[in-house]
Write a protein that binds this DNA or RNA. Structure first.
Lengths: 220, 220
DNA sequence: GACCGCCTCCCCCGTGCGGGGGAGGCCGGT
DNA sequence: ACCGGCCTCCCCCGCACGGGGGAGGCGGTC
């Protein structure tokens, strides 16, 4: 019997692309589509797909929350393949930590996309970007989410630091961040320094650039 | 006879999506695909499509250069529809100035995509994002590239200022920009101040954020 | 209990940054 | 010949920023 797939992405064009690529395979069947995370749970209950290919960044309910919800509420949950635009997408790592089984770059070639779906359907975890695979190899770790977690360790920002970076990336000054977080400016300066050090950035501008380039914050 | 379309995008997934959406129409036919701008000219010569739907951001030869090349070298060039991810993409306006006939957001609904292809095929120019249409309305301008040019006027950065902004967005300090451009740091400060004023930014970080959010610089 | 990571706040200090001016040279349009 | 826009460079000045330290409280783990 074929592998059944549910597509979840807010952009119809991406859904159409995935459908076209996957339907071309005789052993893969796209059984449904959803435009946001909120619609996923009932659909999964009804359609019982083998694999859910889901965007991380979506309105209403994002891929991370949807992943958590799926694993929490559905008995025998489907395999979850997280779809993303960027390598080193902080959201993706969060999704993997939330229990997703693998991820997929939108710019991947059709053959890779098909391969990814087949792999997770067979119960293999997979981490697509070369950077992560390299890490997995370095750690003599035959796949699984450990590698992804390791990537997070790299620039292991604490929760507070990540919060500060997000505010930096919205253009706030140290004083404004301090007001927002209801702490002293000296505290903010400490966090900012930590962020700069961990990201290897010389100043806040470079840190914000890194935030954008890595997908830590979404443009547009 | 059907409208013939050539798809040009470096991501196979996007091509597959566009193909799926367009092929669903009886009066539209996708006659070919290309992965970058360099391959476009020979393909257009051979296939003579009515419309070329082309990404702006591509390796080797981007959509702007490809547009110029097409209009320069091909007699009776096809209509050119520029495909983009962001509204307010500086590249898109450049493409339109280079002679493209309209543009298309990737996150548009299938019906809008189909509509856009039909429109340009009929010889209409179209500027999809609401912001640009609003501008066109304000100026009592029934479409055409004037509206897009007007958007550029808004934050009318001089060439030098745009150059400085691009370097700012790469994390360079004033001194580094000065060295790169072989001018004094005082000069750079002047340009930076002008950029901040024109963008309504308080500091360089906010300017860089604006650059990313507007698509003036590409993430990733 | 000892240890560690995180968050919080404090000091000093240098400097890059940005505001507000002004000014000269060059070029293109009228 | 004149004006306007652009690029270039200059002055003064205040301050936010970031580096380098340190330190206390708090919650976990061993």
């Amino acid at each position: 019997m074929p592998v059944t797939v549910l597509l979840v992405d807010d952009e119809p064009l991406v859904r159409a692309g995935l459908r076209a690529v996957l339907e071309a395979q005789p052993d893969i069947e796209v059984v449904g589509e959803a435009a946001d995370g909120a619609a996923v749970i009932p659909l999964v209950r009804r359609l019982r797909p083998d694999v859910v290919a889901m965007d991380v960044r979506m309105p209403l309910l994002d891929g991370i929350e949807a992943t958590r919800a799926l694993l929490r509420t559905v008995g025998e949950p489907p395999k979850i393949l997280v779809v993303t635009t960027f390598e080193n997408d902080e959201y993706v790592y969060e999704a993997l930590r939330a229990g997703a089984d693998g991820f997929l770059l939108k710019r991947a070639r059709p053959a890779e996309i098909v391969h990814a779906v087949r792999l997770v359907a067979e119960g293999e975890s997979l981490l697509f970007p070369a950077s992560v695979r390299r890490l997995a190899a370095e750690h003599g770790d035959g796949g699984g989410n450990r590698a992804a977690r390791d990537v997070l360790e790299r620039a292991r920002l604490t929760e507070r630091e990540a919060e500060v970076l997000r505010l930096m990336a919205r253009g706030l000054s140290n004083a404004e961040i301090a007001a927002r977080l209801v702490v002293g400016t000296e505290t903010v300066k400490s966090h900012v320094s930590a962020v700069l050090a961990k990201l290897g950035a010389r100043d806040r501008t470079q840190a914000v650039i890194t935030a954008y380039e890595s997908g830590f914050v979404a443009p547009g």
